[in-house]
Design a protein around this nucleic acid. Structure first.
Lengths: 145, 145
DNA sequence: TTGGATGCAAAAGATTTGCATCGGC
DNA sequence: GCCGATGCAAATCTTTTGCATCCAA
């Protein structure tokens, strides 16, 4: 997986005549090592902690690249913070977000996907992407409350 | 409608022992006069143009109040900008957003709503709210392209 | 060699906050 | 008169950008 990710990223760089720098390698490495959602700042911190000092701007620039080539996806659960998640060979999914502990659960529902298409068509839209977040309280937090 | 909105807002203020100031009145007035989505800045500009100078901070503070009492809703279609829409006696709905011209269409689909509930329950979540945005290109923009 | 990449610091935006003053109730 | 509200400016916070320097190809 990780190896494959690294591979497709390098392919993308070549395709666009961009350079495969050590910073980009380091960022992709850390980013793909995690499974969940991270912010640009999270990554920047992890890199620093790992002794790999990279400029914050470079992290942002690289995440943008990763999104462009489809290896990362943006998700916005709350105001002012953009989260990124690795999107490697992972099917499209939506999110359930616990508003108490922040835990997220991914799910996919084919019926909903199809309905979305139908609704869009009915309104003359051609869907390119969508975002569905369900916010609520998870079992654990409900138990604690 | 507008009269009723003003009413419920005043009720809310009383309930919370907050004050019904002329600024708050002006903001609610303008906000509810429009039907679509506006940013805090939009409102601030409209007020100024109408000769009603109100501090930007007050607009933000009042919008927050309106959301608290359920008269406004937040919607985030793109990075870094929070849009607000009046939520008066209007059923819940989701959005179709044209990524080219920015036009939005509201829709409601009962089947999807029910499925969301089911999915959440299956994962042990109790949903409090959700947000579903379908992004795509509308008919007009497609024709122009 | 050369054009893209990096790091830093400054800039940009949106939103919030501190504080002195103002004004409902 | 009291306590919340306001306005302004300063502060925050995230993300972007300008620019001189650096480095992969």
């Amino acid at each position: 997986m990780t190896a494959k990710t690294r591979k497709s990223f390098i392919d993308y760089l070549k395709l666009k005549n961009l350079k495969n720098t050590s910073q980009r390698q380091a960022i992709v490495e850390i980013f793909c090592a995690g499974r969940g959602h991270v912010t640009a700042e999270d990554l920047h911190r992890k890199l620093s902690q790992g002794g790999r000092r990279v400029g914050a701007a470079t992290v942002y620039r690289t995440l943008k690249l990763l999104c462009e080539c489809g290896l990362a996806k943006e998700a916005r659960f709350k105001e002012g913070v953009t989260m990124f998640e690795p999107d490697v060979e992972k099917a499209h999914h939506d999110h359930l977000v616990c508003t108490t502990c922040g835990r997220t659960v991914e799910f996919y529902n084919d019926t909903i996907e199809k309905l979305q298409e139908t609704i869009a068509r009915r309104h003359g839209f051609t869907i390119t992407t969508h975002r569905m977040n369900l916010f609520g309280v998870c079992r654990d937090c409900r138990a604690k409350a």
